[in-house]
Design a protein around this nucleic acid. Sequence first.
DNA 1: TCGATTTGGGAGATCGTTTACAGATCTTCT
DNA 2: AGAAGATCTGTAAACGATCTCCCAAATCGA
Lengths: 410, 410
Amino acid sequence: MRARGVNQTGGTTTIIDVAHAAGVSTATVSRVLNGDARVNPALAARVQRAVTKLGYRPSRAARTLRTQQARVWALIIPDVSNPHFTDMVRGIEDVAYSAGYSLILCNTDADAEKERTYLELALAEHVVGVILAPTSPDPSLIEEMLSRKVSIVTVDRRISSGMLDGAFVNNVAGAEQAVDHLLARGYCHLACITGPTDTTTGRDRLDGFMSALRRNGLELDDPAFVRIGDFRESGGQREMEALLSLSVRPDAVLVANNLMTLGALKAIVAAGLEVPSDMAIVGFDDSSWNAVVHPPLTCVAQPAYDLGAESARLLLSRIDGHSGPNREVMLVPTLRIRESTAERSSATHARHTVPGIRPSVDDAGGGNGRGDGKARSPQTGAATVPTPRGATSALQNRTTRSTKGARPTR
Amino acid sequence: MRARGVNQTGGTTTIIDVAHAAGVSTATVSRVLNGDARVNPALAARVQRAVTKLGYRPSRAARTLRTQQARVWALIIPDVSNPHFTDMVRGIEDVAYSAGYSLILCNTDADAEKERTYLELALAEHVVGVILAPTSPDPSLIEEMLSRKVSIVTVDRRISSGMLDGAFVNNVAGAEQAVDHLLARGYCHLACITGPTDTTTGRDRLDGFMSALRRNGLELDDPAFVRIGDFRESGGQREMEALLSLSVRPDAVLVANNLMTLGALKAIVAAGLEVPSDMAIVGFDDSSWNAVVHPPLTCVAQPAYDLGAESARLLLSRIDGHSGPNREVMLVPTLRIRESTAERSSATHARHTVPGIRPSVDDAGGGNGRGDGKARSPQTGAATVPTPRGATSALQNRTTRSTKGARPTR
DNA sequence: TCGATTTGGGAGATCGTTTACAGATCTTCT
DNA sequence: AGAAGATCTGTAAACGATCTCCCAAATCGA
């Protein structure tokens, strides 16, 4: 045995050790490990035996250095503690795991600087793919990625240039649907707490809100009825307090994500007011608590898990060499109606009948209890309404079905 | 210029390019980059200029291969979509980021096989550290880690052998406190929905529950009052349904984590019952929705962010060479009292007065609204009670204070 | 039987760093 | 002035895989 050949204590066992043990060259070991067909089965078996006997584990670093490609994805998202993103992460993790990739978790806090740092890290780590829920990414870094053949897809939020694959939810349609529902339920002084306007989610939800108002022949009662929040609980609370302090208040509000909805709700409770009699609420994101808060919250539910899974599949297909035009998978949100938007009963406001809009949706009430286990996503205690107009579905080659691949354990 | 020296399109710019551009050797460049003091300032400046001009980024893979150490931690947790763990992750991420480490996210679904796979991955990736919230880890892999000088700490859950550094919450004390509170509030037929008994969290919370009963001279009304759940929403719902279907029901229940509490609550609502009049609830984990569900939930709040941050600091110190005896940081949970455990009013059960226990806590009601922003963790609308007996604090060298390092943005 | 073709396997270069070692230069002291 | 340190800087050998060559053996055809 040669000096280096022995699996000496402390030293990692390398491909050389295996080669010696099996009496072959390192090249052969590598071939066996990588499934190169043209190697004698007898030899291959011997190698395999040596591998298991020595407990050999190839060094990822060496492989990465040689192939210039790490079997790793960078996952760059604004907030790991937001359930919307963690559900996405679950979808991504499941797909990545079964395809043999691991994930580097990058939490940007919606901070451009951290985002930049993490993009650079991805480059330095030679990751083979990046999944980005962008805040305000440096275009030059994106370009460098592409020129270096790093696959990159966006998720949840579009990047301004729109030149990447991505998986999104139709936020405009979701917001429009929410507004239609509020109007149908008799609310007519609508406000909106949206997210930062440098995110497409923040913009699109506001756009949908405004366009639905216009389509129904309405105007904003007061410019102050549009509030720009920060997608965080504190922001939702702050903006709701602002709305409540107006001399003439809205009678309903669309809040553009789950955390802000929670904050808004807290502000209302703190002010001693009631939902929906003093203020109706439609939130975005159907978080698990929505059905048991007081009152249960009507919301635009996003298929977050599938959003993640779809983006991961887009990435996989790019990594596997697909080089067609850019693809955008647009998933359809669902309005889940609960009590925070119960029919307006008060006589103070005349019932506002919107021309051309009939209350197309009826509250089918409770039912369908449990269902988080392995099931898809029937949430508890809500009437479910698929988005009516399929409109903006900009995908090509790929349908928006979100069935493929059952979701494990969870 | 030599053939390889030029930053040719497609080729990554390497340390050699920088060396050429700056007119020095690669060794010098490396020294400058790694902050080796003994290099001429003038040269160093030239190198730095070349680095920025060429946009040079060192290859992590090469560095890892050479040093046998990736500046990466593996973060192995059971469930990324559980807010308790994501809050922990936030704490870990913050510490890791500012120390220049990146995280590989490993989601095990409490599945031993996935856990094993990920531990092997950590080994193959040459990660320098592992943070593990264990389910049922393979001891031989742990030992291999240690013998390979990979630092490893546990968090949230203890590993049976107890031979690793770790950060935990005093679950026994938390559960005891919850029971004392329920008894003080007049409930005397107590049940417990705990987690899998192969997790220390599941066991400890049940232990605390039982020991507090005993200490107060009580027995379990019915063996079926102890339910083993799975820490998931569906499990909580299922076990609560089981409790509700008993001929003689408990009048209060301690539920051992946030998701199961949600499930349990849904089961109660679905059965048309009321909290707390039909069934009082104390949960574990103070998730953001606890204050706005109906009714607001009393819970044992865990400092999840700090739990993560502490474990990360333990890991850092090991990586930095600390080699003392094992350290366990034990954090103190806090009982937050809300309406799900309002004073028992019904006359059907005689008011059970527990000897030696006086209702030491008064419901101080609302107040203190917003406070998630950059603030520490004052939660909304709850009376806060620190654990009385500091008991099991097994740490050495290190206090349990959890102040160091302000928590950014969130 | 011999040459041509196929097939399997080994030698060794290579990926981009770090770092032990050896020079080279400059002080400083006797 | 010469020797002995003290400082820097460069040379080149790793680190552990992959993969291109290239050679040896085996197979085949005539």
